[in-house]
Write a protein that binds this DNA or RNA. Structure first.
Lengths: 195, 195, 195, 195
DNA sequence: CATGAATGAGCCTTCATTCAT
DNA sequence: AATGAATGAAGGCTCATTCAT
C-alpha cells in the first residue's frame, strides 16, 4: 500500500498558516492550502474534518505550546513574578519571530474558531490564562507588583498590546525591529512612560 | 421637493455594525443588514457600492471622528502631553462604551477593509496616527515622557491594549466594568506595574 | 421590482419530473433541472430548500391528488366496493398516462424521499392507505369481496402490480398499450387467471 | 499452490447486498462494503471493475438462479401450468425469505444497473422472461388459463406485485407474515378477489 | 493478492449583486 | 428611490477509483 511519507498534517498546517495569513480564513481556499502543502485537495480531508478544523488545530498547537511554557515558567522558583512576565513577553516575541505569519493568523482569525465543547484550544487557552493570572497574583502577594493593578485588566492590556504589535510587525517586518518592540513593552510595563 | 425621510444611509450603517458585530463580516448577509435597517435588500446598493463599502464607511466615520477629536485635542495649550494621552484613552472608552458593537467591529474587521487609494478611512487613519505621534513627540520634547520610549512601539502597544480590552468588554459587558479597564490603562501607562 | 411571472414552482416540478425520470434522483443535476425549467440554477433554491425537497414535493402533490380522489370515491354511495376499486385502477392509469415520466419517478424514487415528521407526502400517503383499506373492508363487509383476502396483502399486490406495469409501460410506451394493461388488471383482480 | 481462503468475491457480494439494502446504491460507500466484507477498500477492485459491477453481479446471480429454476420447472411434465406458476411464486418467496435484504436490493436498485451489451444479468433476465411466457402460453394452449389474459400484462402484474410485497415485508418483517402474502398471491391469481 | 493513503473530478448550495417593475 | 425576485459564479466537501508499497 501507499505509505505516509513525511508529516502531511504538519505540512498542511504550515501551508494553512501561510494562506490564512495572506488571505484570511474566509478567502483562503482549500485548494490553495493543498497546493501549498504539495498535496491534492481531497487529502486535506484525510487529516482534518473541514477547513475550520485546520484553523482550530493551529490554535490548539499554539495555545498548547504557550500553556506548556507558562506552566514550566510558573514552576521555577529562581525567578520572581516580574522576571516571569518578562520571560513571557520574550516567549511571545520568540514564537512569532520564527513564524511571522502565525502572528497574523493568531491576531486576526480568533473570530473564526469554532467553540465546540471538546475543542482543545479552549482548554489550553483557559489553562494559560489561569497560569497567567497565578503569575500576577504571586507578584502581588510577594509585593513586587502594584496591588492596585487589576489582574484581568492587565492581562487584556498586555496580551492585546503584544498581539497588535506582533501583527503590525509581521505585516511589515522591515518597518520596525522586533527587538525595539520587545524592549519597549518591558519598559512600559515596568515604569510606565513617564520620565 | 422630496425630502429623504430619516437617514437610510445611517440606518444601514447602524444595522451593519450590529450584524457585523454579531456574525463577522463574512458571515453577515446583506439581506440581514437590510432587514435590520428596515429596508429591502436591493436598497443597500443605492447607498453603497457593495458590502465592503459598508464596512469601509463604518471605519471612515470612526477614524474621521477619532481624527477630529485628536486634532482638536492637540490644539489645546492648556493640557500637557500626558493629560492629552489620558483624554485620548477616555475618548476610546467613551466612543465604544456608547456602541459596544462598534468596538467588536473595530477590532475584528480591520482585515476585511479594502485598501484602495481613495479610501477615506486610510487618510483619516494616517492623520490620526500623525497627530498621535505628534502628541507623544511633544511629550518627549517637553520632557514629560521618557525619551527611551519608541513612539511607534508605544502607539502599537497602547492601541492594541485598548482594542483588546474593548473587544473583550464588549463581548461580555457584565464580566468587568469598563471603568476598571480605563483606570488600569492609565495606571499602567503612568507608572508601570511595579510597586 | 422584478415580479414573478408564470408559475416557476410548477415549472421546476415539471422539469424535475423529466430529469428524475431520465437520470434518476442521484444523477439528476440541479443545473439540468433549472435549465429544463428555463431558469437559473440558484432560482431553484428560491422555491425549494434543496434537491430532496423537490422530490418530496412531487410525491406530496401526487399522493395529495390520489388521496383527494380516493376520498371522494369512498364517499360515493352509488358504487359498490368492486366498482370503486376499478375506478381506483383507472385513476392510476389516467394520472400516469398523462405524465408517463411521473410514473417512472413514482416507482423508482420512493427510496430517496426524506421521512421527516412534517413531510406532507407521508400524511397523504397514510390517508390514502386508510381510505384504500376502508374501501376493501367495505367490500368484505358488504359481502362482495372474498373475506379470505388479507387487506394488507391485497393492497401491496395491487399497488405493486400497478407500479411495475406503469413503470415498464412508461419506459417503452410503444411496446404495449396502456389499455391492455388496464383491462388485464381488472380481469385478474376480478376472476383470477383461470378459465 | 496458494489456495484462496474463503471466497472474497462472495463475501463482497454479501456485504454489498446488506449495504445496498440499508443505504441504497448511491449512498452505499465502497469503504463500507469492504469493511462489512472484512477486507480493504482497494481489494474490492481486485474482484470487481467498479461499484456498478458489484450490483450487476448481484443481479446476475439472482436472475441466473431464477432462470435455472424456471427452466427446470418448465421441463417437468408432471405439473400443469397453474401448478408451475404456484411453484414460481413459492420460488420468489423462498429466495427472498432467506435473504430479505436481497429483496430490497432487487426491488429498489434495478434502475442503477448498467445495460451494457455483455451484461449477463440481461441475458438471464431475458431467458427467464422467455420461460415465464412459455409457461403461460402453455397454460393457455392447454386450456387451463384464460386466453383473454395478456401474457405480458400478467407477467408485469405478477412480478410487480411480488416485488412490492417482498420489499415491504423485508423492510418490516414483523408487520406481516410472509406466508400470508404468499397465500394471498395464489388466492388472487386463482380466483380474483370476488366472492 | 492485499492494503489504505492519495487523488481530483464533480456538484450542491450560498449569497453578493443585478435588474425589471 | 425602492423593491425583492432572479442570477450565476464560486468553493467546500465527498468518495469512487488508483497506485505505491
Amino acid at each position: 500500500m501507499r505509505v505516509k511519507e513525511g508529516n502531511k498534517e504538519a505540512d498542511i498546517l504550515d501551508a494553512a498558516i501561510k494562506v490564512f495569513a495572506k488571505s484570511g480564513f474566509h478567502n483562503a481556499k482549500i485548494y490553495t492550502i493543498a497546493e501549498t502543502a504539495g498535496i491534492a485537495t481531497g487529502s486535506v480531508y484525510l487529516y482534518f474534518r473541514n477547513k475550520e478544523a485546520v484553523l482550530n488545530k493551529i490554535f490548539e498547537n499554539l495555545w498548547g505550546q504557550l500553556y506548556k511554557e507558562i506552566s514550566e515558567l510558573n514552576q521555577r522558583s529562581d525567578l520572581n513574578a516580574i522576571d516571569k512576565i518578562y520571560y513571557l513577553i520574550d516567549l511571545f516575541f520568540d514564537i512569532f519571530f520564527e513564524k511571522p505569519e502565525l502572528a497574523i493568523v493568531f491576531v486576526n482569525e480568533q473570530t473564526n474558531l469554532s467553540h465546540a465543547k471538546d475543542d482543545l484550544w479552549i482548554r489550553y487557552n483557559e489553562l494559560f490564562i489561569e497560569d497567567g493570572e497565578k503569575m500576577l497574583a504571586e507578584g502581588i502577594s510577594t509585593g513586587v507588583i502594584n496591588p492596585n493593578i487589576n489582574v484581568r485588566a492587565f492581562r487584556y492590556f498586555l496580551l492585546g498590546g503584544l498581539r497588535y504589535m506582533l501583527d503590525n510587525w509581521a505585516k511589515d517586518q522591515k518597518a520596525l525591529s522586533i527587538n525595539v518592540l520587545r524592549q519597549n513593552v518591558k519598559l512600559i510595563i515596568k515604569k510606565g512612560i513617564l520620565v
